[in-house]
Simulated scan of single mutants.
Amino acid sequence: MKVTVVGAGAVGATCADNIARKQLCDELVIVDIKEGVAEGKAMDLMQTAQLEGFDTNIIGSTNDYTKTAGSTVAVITSGVPRKPGMTREELIGINAGIVKTVTKNILQYSPDCIIIVISNPMDTMTYLALKESGLPKHRIIGMGGMLDSARFRYFLSTAMQCSPNDLQAVVVGGHGDTTMIPLTRLATYSGVPASHFLDADTLKKVAADTMVGGATLTGLLGTSAWYAPGAAGAALVEAIVRDEKKIMPCCVYLEGEYGQSDICIGVPVIIGKNGWEKIIDYNLNEEEQALFVKSADAVRSMNSVLSTLSI
């Protein structure tokens, strides 16, 4: 079993760290375009093997995809964060070129792999990876819903003063401050609706805090978060390589589900060895469905930028 992580920045390195610690594969390959970075981080991680008790062999590569040959799963984290003064179109233009090239390189040596996309803007990059790869839709998965839902459970657990592990809570829709939809109606604490413990105003605040969860961290850190995004990517890898059949909120291609088509957006899916295997219908109420349509419209607007690019 081989897994590849493309991008040796903070998110990619954290994802690789989690994969190694959980021993999700025999060989883990980290690829980066910057000379020596992937090799250095691979060596650093390998020097923790005895301390952490794992046997995964970790290899670093500077833009040499031959080492990734035969990967079961590839995680794309590469790209640039949005910088002050950078327009949405500029960010998409830069990262679209990167994601297109990485996808092509991965599939040249691992044509049967499943691709997980973390690069931003995640919904649009997932859509691009699907269209450019020509792969069956179930083999391209965007990570965003996993991260947003983890943040939702964090803010719920803080409000309820309980363990996030006892909570079930999911976010659907686009992976963005104005497009994600925390489904407070469906949130539960060991099977009991969260609304039994929190009043409507508190639940609204939890949802609002979730929606700006990434921006809040960026404000505090001065850069994008990496621990939770990396762990979310690794959790998806785990569900695939261990064929866990878990229901996870992910960005996948819709063909009529939730009233939407020709779009990659966050919905609950069953994840197993074949990638995403089935979309789960949460039967959104009228208000939630209206928000989902609005979210999809915003994602489509982002996707429309792709047609203007020369990549």
Results as ranks from 00 to 15, higher is better:
residue 74 A to G: 08
residue 311 I to A: 11
residue 132 E to K: 02
residue 229 P to K: 00
residue 173 G to L: 07
residue 252 V to C: 06
residue 85 G to P: 04
residue 74 A to E: 07
residue 9 G to P: 03
residue 194 A to P: 02
residue 280 I to P: 04
residue 2 K to R: 09
residue 195 S to A: 13
residue 111 P to I: 09
residue 125 M to W: 03
residue 180 M to T: 06
residue 96 A to T: 02
residue 263 I to Y: 01
residue 144 G to W: 04
residue 218 T to K: 13
residue 192 V to Q: 14
residue 58 I to L: 08
residue 51 L to C: 07
residue 131 K to W: 00
residue 160 M to E: 08
residue 183 L to R: 00
residue 171 V to D: 00
residue 148 D to R: 10
residue 151 R to W: 05
residue 100 K to Y: 10
residue 106 I to Y: 03
residue 157 S to N: 08
residue 298 A to N: 11
residue 224 S to K: 15
residue 41 K to P: 07
residue 130 L to H: 09
residue 152 F to N: 03
residue 255 E to V: 08
residue 23 Q to I: 05
residue 264 C to K: 00
residue 213 G to M: 04
residue 141 I to C: 02
residue 231 A to M: 13
residue 147 L to D: 04
residue 61 S to Y: 10
residue 105 N to A: 03
residue 57 N to L: 09
residue 94 I to Q: 06
residue 8 A to M: 08
residue 55 D to Y: 12
residue 181 I to Y: 04
residue 211 M to K: 11
residue 127 Y to E: 05
residue 254 L to M: 14
residue 181 I to S: 03
residue 281 D to Y: 12
residue 48 T to P: 00
residue 300 R to P: 03
residue 121 P to V: 08
residue 88 R to H: 10
residue 213 G to L: 06
residue 169 A to S: 11
residue 242 R to C: 10
residue 111 P to G: 08
residue 297 D to W: 07
residue 113 C to Q: 06
residue 262 D to P: 01
residue 1 M to Q: 00
residue 222 G to R: 11
residue 147 L to G: 01
residue 253 Y to K: 01
residue 55 D to N: 15
residue 250 C to Y: 00
residue 269 V to Q: 07
residue 143 M to Q: 10
residue 203 L to D: 09
residue 125 M to F: 03
residue 191 G to S: 11
residue 26 D to T: 12
residue 157 S to W: 07
residue 67 K to W: 02
residue 230 G to S: 11
residue 245 K to D: 12
residue 270 I to R: 14
residue 10 A to Q: 13
residue 234 A to S: 05
residue 196 H to R: 14
residue 117 V to H: 06
